[in-house]
Design a protein around this nucleic acid. Structure first.
Length: 335
DNA sequence: AAGGGTCCCAACCGCTTCGGC
DNA sequence: AGCCGAAGCGGTTGGGACCCT
């Protein structure tokens, strides 16, 4: 009797397995790719090799079994920068973005972005309790403020050497009742919060209740030269597709075997390439600044959220009216 | 120690695009 | 030109690991 655990019976009486892959299945799939290359996925099932759909096989290969993958390895600071920059340029074109990140899949990029988005969303959404950690760390905001408009801006240095970060949040404080009195203060924008990221937050429901107004940067992210980014990587040699009946291994079809055999060498090459072709992420000198800061701060970029003075959000108040909010939501950063 | 919350990631689903006929 | 299957892509979900209280 056939094992039906995890198997889904099809109308034609056959079974399709879903769920986690076993090591044995991986091995079968690897053997298939070694022989025939990463194509003809549907034939894996029709040949009776695996009870998986072609789709499932392809996904498994692309996301887990493909050579040179950096699986189980967190995104580096530079990779994060690349993703942030490319997302601003391409939008949610994860597959396209992934081609600029050797060893990363579209799934990796997608997961990274959604995790990061959730994190930011939570920071903006949840009223931060007065944390002991940040108490007294944000003097600019360390007092009641009637209303804040936070707008991303660039390239305004606050005095020579006073700040290592060119990106800052411009906080406009309107004094209630006076209306025409406005005070501008520059709040250092943590390196990993880019104006583009702030614009992303426009979609967040929290902003219905927060008078944050976003203004597009005068320097469009579309100006970022792509030549500064790592070039898209092709993982495979391009081989002619054999006819279906000729799927048997051929002595001449060494391309994929080579690919498996030389994984390690090419991996280090890719990593080196990524390092040497470090993107500037749109702002001249910013990569250098970031590098400098990275040297001084060995923590991962994730730690920025720990450092971010989250009580900046303590003073955000609901929008006066939906009309005001409309002016914000109508702004499209990609225009 | 237990329970809840969060994060991360693998895998699936549905839609779109592509290519052959 | 239209159809159909394969492949690609982006969104979503489920579950395990981890952390915190």
């Amino acid at each position: 009797m056939r094992e039906t655990l995890g198997m889904e019976r099809q109308s034609d009486g056959t079974y399709i397995k879903k769920g986690p892959w076993t090591a044995e299945e991986d091995e079968v799939l690897m053997n298939y790719v070694r022989k025939y290359g990463p194509r003809g996925w549907s034939s894996i099932r029709s040949m009776g090799l695996l009870p998986r759909t072609g789709k499932s096989c392809r996904l498994r290969w692309v996301n887990k079994l493909r050579p040179n993958l950096k699986s189980g390895c967190k995104f580096s600071a530079e990779e994060e920068r690349v993703v942030i920059d490319l997302q601003a340029q391409f939008g949610n074109k994860w597959a396209k973005i992934a081609t600029y990140l050797p060893g990363r899949t579209d799934n990796d990029v997608k997961n990274f972005w959604s995790a990061r988005r959730k994190r930011l969303e939570r920071i903006l959404q949840t009223p931060q309790p007065k944390s002991q950690k940040n108490k007294g760390k944000s003097p600019v905001l360390d007092r009641p403020s009637p209303a804040l408009k936070v707008s991303p801006c660039r390239s305004a240095r606050v005095g020579e050497g006073s700040s290592s970060c060119e990106d800052q949040i411009q906080v406009t404080e309107s004094v209630s009742g006076l209306g025409n009195t406005e005070e501008f203060r520059m709040v250092p924008l943590p390196d990993l919060i880019k104006p583009e990221m702030l614009s992303m937050e426009i979609e967040f429901p929290i902003l219905d209740a927060a008078p944050i107004q976003m203004f597009p940067s005068t320097e469009s992210s579309l100006d970022y030269p792509l030549s500064h980014l790592p070039q898209p990587q092709l993982d495979f040699p391009v081989l002619p597709l054999p006819p279906f009946e000729g799927l048997a291994p051929k002595p001449s079809d060494h391309g994929f075997q080579d690919m498996f055999e030389h994984q390690e060498g090419s991996k280090s090459k890719n990593e080196q390439k990524l390092l040497t072709k470090l993107p500037s992420v749109g702002m001249e000198g910013n990569a250098q600044v970031a590098k400098k800061e990275d040297r001084g701060n060995p923590e991962t970029p994730d730690s920025f959220f720990d450092e971010f003075p989250t009580d900046i959000f303590d003073y955000l108040e609901p929008l006066p009216s939906s009309l005001d909010w409309q002016t914000v939501s109508n702004w499209n950063p990609m225009k």
